[in-house]
């Protein structure tokens, strides 16, 4: 991998809750280079969105707080920047597509106005030039009759079109990093495929680095270059997509890959029960000293309950946080 454009280094995020302190991100480290797609996968609540929010400087505070760690964009430290400085970074350098498109679009403005607004926030463009740019962006995300659709309100568009508008807003200022948080969960498979194609085109044409958050291993296989698997606030495995998917090292990653009934071009005649990961994700306020996956892990040894396994190289640049895995 070339020098990272964005690097998240040893970031800890804590939330104060009634049940005590919740360590939502526990020493998370990630990096993404220009023109690369990094996938983040894991079960609900493992900290995928929180990782994205910490990069954007949007961790709700209070109750949340970036307790320690460093987030650098081309060497520039983002942790500790003022709100005004962060505002500049968002949109100009880092764009984000949120999990729920409807809640992040403003219902009282046309989609054209909203994209133009995003252009004007970060560039000195005249209103007219900004609107022209908005229409151009709508065309770029393959919305038919873009000049007409720019005058539409969010509720007048289909779910797939709204998600494309979100992408257009995020890309209007040509960010160097795009974070897409489950950009297609609410969409039909055929529309999802269109959105994924769009992301891939943008990445190969503009060299934008993309962080793709998803729970779909198929999407990781077909889109991402590298992948990070998260569990209970920690990165438990990280490497290139080819190695992690074909040779997973962490018991949780193995479980995630095998427990899903993947679509097979030649389905087997006899159907075996799906391998299960027993139990559920632990509450973040009740984590012990050991490996957070231990209560669900079939490979557990005594050591697992005593200390957290560090994320270390197993094979080449392939990192795993497990006492048992590795060479």
């Amino acid at each position: 991998m070339s020098a990272p454009l964005l690097s998240v280094d040893d970031v800890v995020v804590d939330f104060k809750t009634r049940a005590g302190n919740a360590r939502v991100l526990d020493h998370v480290s990630l990096e993404v280079a220009s023109g690369e797609i990094l996938g983040i996968v894991g079960e609900s609540g493992c900290g995928k969105s929180m990782t994205a929010l910490s990069i954007m400087g949007l961790v709700p505070s209070p109750p949340g707080k970036v307790t320690s760690g460093s987030i650098r964009l081309e060497g520039r430290e983002l942790v500790g920047l003022s709100e005004a400085e962060l505002c500049e970074v968002r949109g100009r350098d880092i764009g984000m597509i949120f999990q729920e498109p409807m809640s992040s679009l403003n219902p009282v403005f046309t989609v054209g106005e909203q994209i133009a607004e995003s252009v004007r926030l970060h560039e000195n463009a005249s209103p007219k030039a900004a609107m022209a740019r908005a229409v151009e962006m709508l065309r770029a995300v393959e919305i038919p009759e873009a000049d007409l659709r720019a005058k539409a309100y969010p509720h007048q568009l289909s779910g797939g079109m709204r998600q494309r508008v979100m992408i257009a807003i995020a890309l209007a200022c040509r960010p160097r990093v795009l974070i897409a948080d489950e950009p297609t969960t609410a969409l039909d498979a055929t529309v999802q495929a269109q959105i994924f194609d769009l992301l891939q085109d943008l990445q190969s044409e503009t060299g934008t680095a993309i962080i793709l958050i998803t729970h779909d291993m198929g999407a990781i296989a077909e889109l991402a270059d590298r992948v990070a698997v998260m569990y209970a606030g920690r990165v438990v495995e990280k490497g290139t997509v080819d190695t992690v998917l074909s040779d997973p090292q962490h018991p949780y990653t193995k479980g995630l890959i095998t427990c899903v009934p993947h679509l097979e071009p030649e389905p087997p005649l006899v159907r075996a029960p799906l391998p299960e990961i027993p139990g559920v994700v632990p509450a973040l306020t009740e984590l012990g000293m050991g490996c957070a996956f231990a209560p669900r892990c079939g490979n557990r040894i005594a050591q697992c309950g005593e200390a957290k396994p560090p994320l270390e190289a197993t094979v080449g640049p392939h990192l795993t946080a497990c006492w048992v895995a590795g060479p």
Binding site: G160, A189, Q194, G218, A219, A221, E222, L223, L263
Partner: peptide, 21 residues
């Protein structure tokens, strides 16, 4: 349209795509 876990970036490109709603 369904991304396949045994798939990769290369064969993604050669698929038919639906347009429109």
């Amino acid at each position: 349209a369904v991304p396949m876990v045994h798939g990769n970036k290369r064969d993604r490109r050669n698929r038919i795509r639906l347009k429109g709603d």
